[in-house]
Amino acid sequence: MMGVLRVMVRKGRWLFDYFDEIEREIEEAFEELFYGRPMWDSSTGRLEPLTEVTETLDKIVVTMDLPLVRKENIHLTIEEDYLKLEAPLERTIRFERWGIIPRHCEFKSFYKIVELPAKVNPEEAKARFKNGVLSVELPKIVRGHKIPVE
């Protein structure tokens, strides 16, 4: 039983606190491994936009934060299992004196490929852009046979 094994350790902390801490550190290390990459590529001048993918019962909604982008410049490609966005920035963004970059680095566009968690029907997708936030609704493909319930 969990409550029986209560071993007091140094500094008055319970052994289980240490287990929790170790578990948390492992989770954080894995997160760094998978997500801890830069959101930019100075060789192509591309930035990765912040993206949120939510799944409801019948659709997938992808939103992206696209500041400094004009609606008419957004290029979206949608397939059954992914969405690709390319959007040039209104003006070049420069980062001066950052890190070991000798002079500066410049970024000119947003670029992102989003893998979708379920297959969607691209022909019925709807996109909306307001206050610099793009929202794309993608109806899921539902295939199958109706069966009677006994």
């Binding site: 997500y35 959101m39 934060d65 500041p67 970024f107």
Partner: peptide
């Protein structure tokens, strides 16, 4: 400067969002 702030704080926001999730 709102749009420029949004561009330049993307990575801090991403890291913060992971922290909030935890």
């Amino acid at each position: 400067e709102a749009e420029e702030i949004r561009v330049k704080t993307r990575e801090l926001m991403q890291r913060t969002a992971r922290s909030l999730q935890r």
